[in-house]
Nucleic acid binder design. Structure first.
Lengths: 157, 157
DNA sequence: CCTTGAATATAGCATATGCTATGTTTTCCT
DNA sequence: AGGAAAACATAGCATATGCTATATTCAAGG
């Protein structure tokens, strides 16, 4: 059970053995992305709320994200520590320059992914849900390819 | 600051105000996915290692994921508790039926996403990295659309 | 056989993300 | 103005995911 005497399954073996460092890098990148997802989602949402209502309040965020307000307060504190937002107690939440930049960047990615999925023929509800998760994992080259596809599809529908 | 007297930016406003419950659902789904990503990655990797080397050892997993072995041991314990793997102390790691099923499912998704990105013209290294993150967020309808695209692209290159 | 290096396990720690329960502060209506 | 409701803050807890440092077990070579 511990020693394979049989010939290795070459097809799968190559899939696994050929590029282990590449896979390790991919996993590390995935972990890094995961760690910044919260900041991205929050900043994007705060920017949306400010655009839509003129201000962002913790209660709106908690409703939108579906989490308890205590969780939001907690997270906002971390975002403040990390320089993304500014907040006085009992006041509404403001983005710093860094936060605003992050929000714009996220919104851009989000829009591209969303329009790409729709251009692929995905129904809007599904596209919306998938975009929410995917946007954090799509690299620039892939985003560029998505944009190319959107443009093509617009020309020849 | 609190009341927008200007004409609303309809594109963004509608994006935010039209479907708040839909967005909440999307975020909740994202959280659920995040919570099962670890199990998926581990099961997929364990299956790969078993196919390639006949057995999966913690040291291989830690190297592949780029984390400390103590972290792997920790996580494997959780996976065992949740019914995905079986392990005796100091022995190699085995997948349960549930673990094997999860691994197969993940591998399937992974392959579809990877081949889709490649069909889109993404370079293999980028495709690999992006697929690693994206595979956890792509719904069945979107996967189906990806497969359709791969088939189309194969017919008319 | 016995030692030694690799693999594993364990303990103890830190942080992020979530929760509930309980107080405080604002805000808004009468 | 004053009180009720809403928003917010804080405390205390749980879990997942990571780490380092230390001990233990296994397997292989002398």
């Amino acid at each position: 059970m511990t020693e394979e005497t049989e010939a290795p399954v070459v097809g799968l073996l190559s899939c696994v053995v050929d590029e282990p460092e590449s896979q390790t890098r991919a996993f590390e990148q995935q972990r890094r992305q995961r760690d910044s997802m919260m900041a991205q989602d929050y900043c994007e949402l705060i920017a949306d709320l400010i655009d839509a209502q003129g201000e962002a309040r913790a209660v709106d965020i908690s409703r939108r994200l579906g989490v308890a307000h205590a969780t939001v307060v907690n997270t906002i504190g971390r975002l403040q520590r990390d320089g993304y937002v500014l907040q006085q107690p009992y006041r509404s939440i403001f983005l710093t320059e860094a936060g605003r930049a992050l929000a714009l960047e996220c919104r851009r990615r989000h829009q591209i992914v969303l329009r790409f999925l729709e251009a692929l023929g995905i129904d809007p509800e599904t596209a919306r849900a998938d975009a929410e998760g995917m946007e954090h994992h799509v690299s620039e080259p892939t985003l560029a390819a998505f944009e190319r596809f959107i443009a093509e599809r617009k020309d020849s529908p």
